[in-house]
């Protein structure tokens, strides 16, 4: 059984490569992929520029953001022991998005934000931390997971309203339209600069979550058991929250709040890791990357007046799997 599961995970990992190839071949312009690859990074030829400067960073960003969201969702579900938990639930995504909106639309000019590239993800992560901090304070000391969730819903709703308000009064002509981007996410027109901006923070977040993997495992036995196993104090929850805020905050700063990945992906891969919350982190990162990459391939190939929002596509892809999981659960299998 374990071997089969490992095979399935290996299959997912192997699928990432053909999906990446499909992403590199997808686009409104048909290019000669072989020639473009051979022409190399520095080539000025049209096909090479499209491949190396447009399609490759976008596909890699989809993988990176998908991995961050999947991992963040798995960590959140593990910590709260709630199947409906996802990074957005504790306001991580909306906190990050609000901070990014305040910086970009009110704070500094885009040029300055670009020169001081670290400012945007740092502030987004700061926003994510603030949101989590507010939830923590609102729920109170020693709050149960359900009270944390309730506080999270309240803070999240408040932050979403603040986002709409901030964009409504932003000096940009496109402010109202851009609310849709921040709520549904997009990878359009992203390049290497955004990828390199998010990468170190997502990697740091992954490292923090890696350090917290045994805490998540212990927590699956209950808080009391986890404490008896030595995972007591605030250090471990803060480690998890820090990891989630860093990885998801950076992802949101460059791609908006893409929903559903963090919620559905851990459920999809949980049976493959035999409910192990530690291994679930990496399996979810893998599946999240694959899901977002596939969603982006659909977005790129969808012909319309406006590019389809990737958040809508992730819901389209993820929801049927979710339906299937729920129906399976009703038949007596574990969710």
């Amino acid at each position: 059984m374990q071997q089969n599961n490992n095979l399935a995970l290996g299959f997912l990992a192997a699928l990432l490569l053909p999906a990446l190839l499909a992403a590199l071949m997808s686009g409104p312009v048909s290019i000669d992929l072989g020639a473009a690859l051979a022409q190399g990074w520095h080539s000025e030829a049209g096909d090479a520029v499209i491949l190396w400067q447009l399609r490759l960073p976008r596909a890699l960003l989809a993988i990176l953001v998908g991995a961050a969201l999947g991992m963040g969702g798995a960590a959140m579900q593990g910590m709260l022991r709630n199947p409906l938990a996802e990074p957005a639930l504790l306001g991580v995504s909306s906190g990050a998005a609000l901070a990014a909106i305040l910086l970009l639309y009110y704070g500094v000019s885009w040029g300055l934000a670009r020169e001081n590239g670290w400012l945007l993800p740092l502030l987004a992560i700061g926003g994510a931390f603030c949101a989590v901090g507010c939830v923590w304070l609102l729920a109170g000391r020693g709050a149960s997971a359900s009270r944390l969730v309730l506080a999270g819903v309240a803070i999240n709703a408040f932050l979403s309203a603040l986002m709409a308000l901030a964009l409504n009064y932003a000096p940009s002509m496109f402010a109202m339209q851009e609310i849709v981007f921040w709520l549904l996410g997009s990878l359009a027109n992203r390049g290497w600069d955004q990828l390199l901006l998010a990468l170190p923070f997502i990697a740091a977040g992954a490292l923090l979550l890696f350090c917290a993997r045994n805490y998540l495992r212990a927590l699956s036995l209950g808080e009391a058991s986890a404490a008896s196993l030595g995972f007591r104090g605030r250090r471990y929850p803060l480690l998890v929250l820090g990891g989630i805020a860093a990885s998801v905050g950076a992802a949101v700063a460059v791609a908006g709040t893409i929903g559903f990945v963090g919620l559905v992906v851990p459920h999809l891969v949980r049976p493959l890791v035999r409910q192990d919350p530690g291994r679930l982190l990496w399996a979810s990162a893998l599946a999240g990357a694959l899901l977002l990459l596939l969603a982006d391939i659909l977005v790129v190939n969808f012909v319309g007046a406006q590019e389809l929002r990737i958040g809508a596509v992730t819901a389209f892809i993820g929801a049927p799997f979710f339906f299937w999981l729920i129906v399976s659960g009703r038949r007596g299998q574990a969710l």
Partner: peptide, 29 residues
Amino acid sequence: RVSLEEVIAAQPDLLVLYGGDKDFALAHL
């Protein structure tokens, strides 16, 4: 709608942008 890929593939001699972008907007990304 014209994607960046189409702009690169079309290779125009002159790229014509529209003004009004002094404030940040993702629309100008």
